[in-house]
Amino acid sequence: MDELLGPASAPVRQVLLKVHSRCNIACDYCYVYQHADQSWRDRPRVMSRATIDLAAARIAEHAGKHDLPFLSVILHGGEPLLAGPDVIDYLVRTVRAAVTSHTKVAFGLQTNGLLLTDRFLELFAAHRIRVGVSLDGPAAANDRHRRFADGRGSHAGAARALRRLNEARHRPLFGGILCAVDVANDPLEVYHHLLTFDPPEIDFLLPHGTWDRPPPHRGPDQDRTPYADWLIPIFDRWYESPAPQTRVRLFESLVSLLLGGPGGAEGLGLGQVDLVTVETDGSLEQGDVLKTVAPGAPATGLHVRWNSFDEYLDHPGARARQAGLAALGAECRRCPLVQVCGGGLYAHRFSTRNGFGNRSVYCADLAAIIRHAARRLAADLPPPSAGK
């Protein structure tokens, strides 16, 4: 397989910095804490200033070597706000000071919102950090999974943060809402609740799982499509909206790919994945979703102290994420939907028997929603001109 993949050809353009390795709530589906890889237990709680310095130097090195016009730095966890405003302030200042090339560095942060105070909002405004908040719908829907360790729900705190971000003075900081799909919830009720916060973008996330450990409601009957059945009513409502003010990343990516354009969501299309993760101890890792696969699955053995991002890109895992069609199993390569589906999210293909050479555990769902969207587009596009 390594010979087929060849060297990675796209530089890193997204750096996910794990500024804190713990969380203040206990979501029962969390891929960091509730799945196979438990490496968080042995990592520092907060990224040290020495590690921040090393990471900043590697970011600057990579940006300069590849003459990058743009690079995104995402502050993540755990819950990144647990790191405190001083750590975040130091990190952003250090990265910006290190990147002396013409590269524009954009900062984002993904949070549950429960610790979003005035001090954080002032800091984010000063540094132009865009903030995404995780919310799974109305209180009953959200609090089924996104709870404190003592069982209390987190909806009220997340909703309070979203209302703050939607105030006129904070609106430029508002990145959007990340929503994990639970088919036990009413899809349109969830969608309309998220829209009440007027987010600039919504991103729907399928629950992570593999063939060894399938996601909820994704049983042995591969003809069933519970997740497509959940998403399709939302797609139709979004598609039929005369002037949607809120982008839905999954649907925009799907439509773009169907029309021959680029994707914008990691789990669709054959585009190259240009992300590296820096853990609190400075380890360079692949995407967090691989924590659902096996202990140590995201690990590369590399570290910001000794290894560059180019060395990370030469790791077999990173190369597989950039190999497009060549990285997929034979069944996927033959599929007529592969240019749009892209095999689905990398980790969702895994089984201990075949590694990542399987179709996605969500294959039937992906096929159903792709075909539905294609039918909607075909009905609205003008017919080909005569004689062409």
Score class of each variant (00 low, 15 high):
Ala10Leu: 11
Val15Glu: 03
Leu16Ser: 08
Val19Ala: 10
Ser21Cys: 11
Ser21Met: 13
Arg22Gly: 13
Cys30Ser: 13
Tyr33Glu: 06
Ala36Phe: 06
Ala36Arg: 13
Arg41Ser: 11
Arg49Ser: 10
Ala63Asn: 06
Lys65Ala: 15
Val73Asn: 03
His76Cys: 11
Gly77Leu: 08
Glu79Asn: 04
Gly84Met: 02
Tyr90Gly: 12
Thr94Trp: 10
Thr94Tyr: 08
Ala97Glu: 14
Val99Lys: 00
His102Met: 04
Leu114Cys: 08
Leu115Ala: 15
Leu116Cys: 07
Leu121Pro: 06
Leu123Met: 10
Ala125Gly: 15
Ala126Ile: 08
Arg128Ala: 15
Val131Lys: 02
Ala149Ile: 10
Asp150Ser: 03
Gly151Lys: 04
Ser154His: 06
Ala156Lys: 12
Gly157Ser: 09
Arg160His: 15
Leu162Gly: 02
Ala168Cys: 01
Arg169His: 01
His170Thr: 01
Leu178Gln: 11
Ala180Met: 12
Val183Arg: 13
Asp186Lys: 11
Asp186Ala: 15
Tyr191Val: 12
His192Lys: 11
Leu194Ser: 05
Leu205Lys: 05
Leu206Pro: 03
Trp211Phe: 14
Trp211Lys: 05
Gly219Asn: 14
Pro220Met: 07
Asp221Glu: 15
Ala228Pro: 06
Asp229Pro: 01
Trp230Val: 04
Ile232Lys: 06
Ile234Cys: 02
Arg237Gly: 01
Arg237Asn: 10
Tyr239Met: 12
Glu252Gly: 09
Val255Asn: 02
Gly263Thr: 03
Glu266Leu: 07
Ser283Thr: 13
Gln286Ser: 14
Leu290Ala: 06
Lys291Ser: 15
Thr300Ile: 11
Gly301Gln: 05
Asp310Val: 10
Gln322Ile: 05
Gly324Ile: 05
Leu328Met: 05
Leu328Ser: 05
Glu331Ala: 15
Cys332Asp: 04
Val340Arg: 02
Gly342Ser: 06
Gly343His: 00
Ala347Lys: 00
Cys363Trp: 03
Ala367His: 13
Ile369Pro: 01
Arg375Met: 09
Ala378Lys: 05
Ala378Ser: 14
Pro382Cys: 11
